[in-house]
Simulated scan of single mutants.
Amino acid sequence: MLSETKEKAEMTAQIIAQQKNTVILTGAGMSTESGIPDFRSESGWWRKIDPLSIATAEAVEENYSLFHEFYSDRLSTLSECRPHEGHYCLASWEKSGLVTLVATQNVDGFHQKAGSVNVEELHGSIHRFRCHNCGEIADKEEFMRQTTCRECEGKLRPSVVLFGEMLPETAWQRSMELVEKAELVLVIGSSLQVYPVSQLPAITRGKTALINRDETSADTDFDLVMKGSAKEILQYMDNYLKNAEV
């Protein structure tokens, strides 16, 4: 890890330790080190296929076979992946009273699997399923078998937020409230290109920090920017916090 990144990681950890009111915002880059492809990098999902042809309500209604194939493949990929050490670092910070919320754009559920409790899934969950028409709850097996809704015979889908759909109101409102009050908002692995989540860091009254492998158009808006592996930087910060006996 570069010395400049280490210095900024220590500064960020100091804020976390001193203020004890940090909100974490994670994007796809948080999960890539668990083996999950991201969306906008050179090897990401959206470089291989047009998202507007799949991740939309229209695709559910008009091209369900392609929609189902895409999300079935994602579920198969997820079944072989696990949270990495960085996820566990965030969970331990929450347990120590340093982190008040993890707001995530990810639908993989890895924060909860690692032990984080206060999690808001801004883009839903790929592990929950429902009818696209009536909202009736379904299970994974029903979705994978391409059965229809037991209530209205509608098409089944994961409970993820598709392009053009509203974010879950409760998750969004709680995230906004806690981000606004936070002493630090730490963004991890997000390109901050997706509205409205991209606006969250701007509403905080506290400091802002970003961990990301690549440059983003929002870099200059942050107080601290750390380039590199989310897992590695979070582990470094966790060791610093442990040595500081927080």
Score class of each variant (00 low, 15 high):
R82T: 15
K227W: 06
A114D: 11
S34P: 08
S191V: 05
V187R: 00
I188P: 04
G109S: 13
Q146E: 15
G29Q: 08
G124Q: 04
K113M: 13
V179H: 09
K6L: 12
G124N: 01
Q18K: 03
K231N: 15
F110I: 07
L210A: 09
S72F: 08
K48I: 06
S31W: 11
V119W: 03
T208A: 09
S65M: 12
I211Y: 09
M144R: 10
E121M: 12
E61F: 01
V194I: 12
S31M: 12
C152L: 08
A244F: 01
D238V: 04
G29L: 07
K113S: 12
S116N: 13
L156A: 10
V179L: 04
L210C: 05
W46H: 06
A13H: 00
A182G: 06
L52M: 13
I54H: 02
V23M: 09
L25I: 14
I126R: 08
H68T: 08
V197N: 07
L234N: 06
E61W: 02
R82N: 11
F67N: 05
I137G: 02
I188K: 00
R128A: 01
E177W: 03
Q146A: 04
Y240G: 00
P201S: 13
Q199C: 14
V185C: 08
I126K: 10
E142W: 01
S79V: 02
C149T: 03
V23K: 02
V102H: 01
G189V: 08
L186F: 13
E58K: 12
E85C: 05
K155C: 03
E165V: 04
A91G: 12
T77Q: 15
Q173V: 08
Q199D: 10
V187C: 04
A114H: 04
M1D: 02
A202L: 13
Y240T: 00
E142D: 04
R157S: 10
F110T: 07
M30I: 08
L66S: 15
E183S: 15
S229W: 06
S43M: 07
V107P: 10
A230T: 11
I233G: 02
I36N: 13
M144G: 09
A244W: 00
E69L: 11
S159E: 15
H123Y: 13
G86V: 01
I24G: 06
V225S: 00
C81D: 10
L2H: 13
P168Y: 03
L66N: 14
A28G: 11
N212C: 10
G228F: 06
C134A: 02
E165I: 05
T12Y: 03
K20C: 09
L192I: 10
D38L: 12
L224K: 11
V161E: 01
M166W: 05
I16T: 01
G35Y: 11
V107K: 10
P37N: 07
S34Q: 11
E42R: 15
V161P: 04
M176I: 12
G206K: 06
E80Y: 11
A9M: 11
E121V: 05
V194Q: 14
G164C: 01
